[in-house]
Design a protein around this nucleic acid. Structure first.
Lengths: 183, 183, 183, 183
DNA sequence: CATGAATGAGTATTCATTCAT
DNA sequence: GATGAATGAATACTCATTCAT
């Protein structure tokens, strides 16, 4: 059921999605959802939390085989993008909610929880970036935000049948930051 | 009037904003707005278009004093960010709509116009990036998307009284891409 | 519920009737109506259809006892008028919608259905008139339209406590057409 | 201007017609109409009154050449129908309002004036019918209502390019009532 | 657990009307 | 006389939510 909700939220955004949309996607009626979740906002939050859980798990799993910090970062990005735009039927919807649902869509009483979840997820990248050997004086926080911004933007332009795979995108974006672009 | 609408749209998002909110912000009544714009969606589009116009103008103006391609890019980013998060009472709201309003907030009949506007704006950056002297084989399109993603993300974490000015952010982000981060 | 709607539509006309009027007459709230009928126009159409059903049934029932074609026509007219202006608490409102609601009150997307219903009802009279033994060369279609026009006009001048009963009106109108008025 | 209003009222009915529709048809703006008529209802009433004036004049004119009472009635009906459904660019719209606008469309404060106008017009037919040599005991009032109902119904089924001209309809309807239909 | 029916607080939109210019 | 702009009351319709069954 959470999955169906995720699918709908990702596709249409929180505001436009109605409880009936979700109900239809789950094969229930709107009223029944309230047995499981007390409100639409709570349902979204549950979807969001599950999304964080899954993407985090996927990214962590990608770190397993050891490697240089840059390699690990690149693998993490690959995993992240695969969740975002990949075709995995189960996971993709959850990850997509990350990007299609903006903070101000959330009911105010959930803002705090939302931020906690975001931070929790970004912690993974914080760790990865902190481990990178970088030039002295690099602003690692800004680097992280620069990277995450670029990653979250991918679903807005990514085309499943386009020339770039998530893996390729990860490789190129990593290289840009690693080696720079000046000849 | 467009300005007031922009302010409200940016602050609350399109879906949650009510015509009465906008009316209150303009000092009119809700009905009066319809004399000038035929629907809420059209109003949003008008705000968006005006935003594109202003940001484009600001970015173009920043290119005036000549310089190296990288300098010009950095100045463009600075201008872009100043519009996005700056305190200029007139311009900021328009630019913010860029980021706070997602495509699916728009009524479907405006999607086409929306894409045209986005493309129009991004053309400025395409030109700037095409002018950069880069390593052979660089995927300039991906670079542009990476940069724009990072820029559009800034308003989500930027704090007006924080330690980083738009100028500083622009300088650092540019340097990251220009010289890379490996020591 | 249809009955309450019919009562209100007949009394005030489609345009002026508000969903809240109907809701009040049914003991519900305006929103609840939409659970049963997707729009005001659909509700009107449902009322109209039910009206056709009832009037047709009443007219058909009146034909049962056999008789000459003219007797049958007269009985049909009586039944029709009793439905239109009679005090039967259940049926009258439905029949009244026939007359108080003009085609252009209907939303355009229902025009087709409306015409089909009208034709369905008038078919009863077509059959009755076709069975009449008439002078050679009589334009039976025009006769039918002449009759129906006269009948539909009755509710506009009928007074419940006036001197004429539906039965009397039917008898006189039939006689006029049957025997003519020349001495 | 009255003519333009008549055209719009006839085509769409009172309720659906907006002041802007009428304004557009007259080449003015909505506000300007209020210089000439104090309200939409008053405008409709003015149209209605002008309609009565013109139809009455046309019917009266048709009576000029002397003839038997039945001939005069038939000529009156012809004139009436020609005004209703004819192509005369000036007159037709006014007459049509007669039929397309039902009493309950009128604002209540005009009901009285409306009834007076209707009665005034029907007086012409009252006179004509009173002059007919009829069987003893004929209910002349009911006859008049029967006839007027049939006439008002004509615009609902009349097709300009159909087989029946107003003149033919008048002749046949008159004959039906005059001589009856029994062989 | 699930549903169908109902609710009521919104929401965009319409439109007759007003009025300063 | 005419207009553009504004008004505000009304209105159909939506939708998260409730709840008896």
């Amino acid at each position: 059921m959470l999955e169906a909700a995720a699918r709908v939220f990702r596709q249409k955004g929180y505001g436009i999605t109605t409880m009936r949309d979700i109900a239809a996607a789950t094969g229930m009626t709107a009223g029944s959802i309230y047995y499981h979740y007390p409100s639409k906002g709570d349902l979204l939050l549950a979807v969001y939390a599950e999304g964080v859980r899954r993407v985090t798990a996927a990214v962590q799993a990608a770190l397993e085989p050891d490697g240089t910090p840059w390699e690990k970062l690149q693998r993490a990005i690959t995993a992240h993008l695969q969740m975002m735009v990949g075709q995995a039927p189960g996971d993709a919807p959850f990850a997509g909610v990350f990007v299609q649902v903006l903070p101000h869509d959330f009911p105010p009483e959930h803002h705090e929880a939302l931020i906690a979840l975001r931070n929790g997820y970004e912690a993974t990248f914080r760790t990865l970036i902190d481990a990178l050997p970088l030039k002295r004086g690099t602003d690692r926080r800004l680097l992280r935000l620069q990277l995450i911004g670029a990653l979250n933007h991918v679903p807005q332009w990514y085309r499943p049948n386009g020339p770039r795979t998530p893996q390729a995108i990860a490789r190129v974006m990593t290289r840009h930051l690693q080696a720079g672009l000046e000849p």
